[in-house]
Design a protein around this nucleic acid. Structure first.
Length: 108
DNA sequence: ACGTTGACCTATA
DNA sequence: GTATAGGCCAACG
């Protein structure tokens, strides 16, 4: 397991309940800005990881749940978010600007 | 070994 | 405001 994925999972686990962040934000925090797709790959691999990774709290820059299909079933991601108090509408997070959690600012 | 793909982002038209 | 293009780099076939 390379350090990159390890760090990604570490950051994702630090996301507070009811908050969300973006792939790009994580990529910038890890110093791999521009390669945000790799964060997506990391999430893809997170599925068969031992440690639980709340990938549903990670959305794209637009606040849209683009990766919901990669969960068990589409709609499961929304359900998980709603369960944590996040309002999801039209495949997007309502009030994304307010709920956005920036690892740069929060984790310093 | 090579071409294609992808849970993205930014820029330009 | 939507549309298209380019860049990024690891994994898959």
């Amino acid at each position: 397991m390379s350090d990159f994925y390890q760090k990604v999972y570490e950051v994702v686990r630090q996301i507070p309940v009811g908050r969300v962040t973006s792939y790009g934000a994580i990529a910038r925090y890890l110093g791999t800005a521009g390669s945000s797709r790799m964060v997506g790959w990391a999430m893809n691999l997170s599925h068969h990881q031992e440690a639980y990774v709340p990938a549903h709290r990670v959305v794209n820059r637009n606040g849209l749940l683009t990766g919901k299909i990669h969960f068990g079933s589409p709609g499961e991601m929304e359900e998980l978010l709603e369960n944590e108090g996040v309002v999801v509408e039209n495949d997007g997070v309502t009030g994304f600007d307010r709920l956005f959690w920036d690892p740069m600012k929060e984790l310093r």
